[in-house]
Design a protein around this nucleic acid. Structure first.
Lengths: 136, 136
DNA sequence: TTACATGCAAACTGTTTGCAAATAT
DNA sequence: ATATTTGCAAACAGTTTGCATGTAA
């Protein structure tokens, strides 16, 4: 994704293209789909010599999520992950590496879902397939 | 579930039936399926005049989970939930009430699941259907 | 020029832990 | 008698926030 496209992406989301946001968006959306934690993105930003504080990384991730640019994925064990792929898909979670992997949901077919209780509607379905190393 | 059954349940799990564990197990397994947080279980224990510290509630929930008596459910937003239903099922999550509801998976049928990467096997599949109130 | 964004450090939440006292076997 | 468990308070991790400073429009 080009610099201009990133600029435009932020503008569309109603977020001012500040130096920090551009840097973080560059890291997030510059290459393919990614899964980051606040900590890991902050580390990357430091390595890239983008002066960005951890607090700003948190704020930015939350703003991006709220704007629909990211999707949050909850995993047991405190740490939150943010996924740059906001299209319809589910996840493998590699328990040994604590890492998420996207699964395209194209040919996934869930049948027999019960109806949402009245007055409520489905806002999202989260599916996480947890994988453990095969025991020797 | 009777007192004796609870006693036996702990014994089978290799956990000494201390006063605190019996009290917490009584609350957890005494009636039907439940979803508790450490905080909520602690509050219940206090109300029931069982002298149990919050630290012990945490430790006990973890021990019970490790013993397979409980299942942990991760939801975005820090707080962990523990489910007394350890059979195969999935969850509704009522976003407005921050509450979990079990869905029996009897007639649920998931097709087209991709294969686990080699060297790994599925240890669990978590499905959470998030529900929001219908906008007026 | 003004409303919004940033950085720092301090606050906060949920959870874990070290250790002395208590308890189950 | 001895190994385990408990409770407290302190430590801890991840995350959020207040406020002075900096920056985009």
């Amino acid at each position: 994704m080009s610099q201009t496209a990133i600029h435009e992406k932020l503008r569309l989301a109603g977020l001012r293209p500040t130096r920090q946001r551009l840097a973080l968006a560059g890291l997030l959306f510059g290459s393919g789909d990614r899964h980051v934690s606040a900590e890991s993105l902050h580390a990357e930003a430091l390595k890239a010599r983008a002066g960005v504080s951890l607090a700003t990384v948190y704020n930015t991730l939350n703003q991006f999520t709220q704007a629909g640019l990211l999707r949050e994925v909850a995993i047991e064990g405190a740490r939150s992950y943010f996924d740059t792929n906001v299209s319809n898909h589910i996840h493998f979670f590699l328990e040994d590496e604590e890492r998420l992997v996207d699964i395209p949901v194209a040919d996934l077919d869930i049948k027999g879902l019960p109806q949402a209780p009245s007055g409520r509607e489905i806002s999202r379905i989260d599916v996480i397939i947890r994988l453990a190393p095969v025991k020797a």
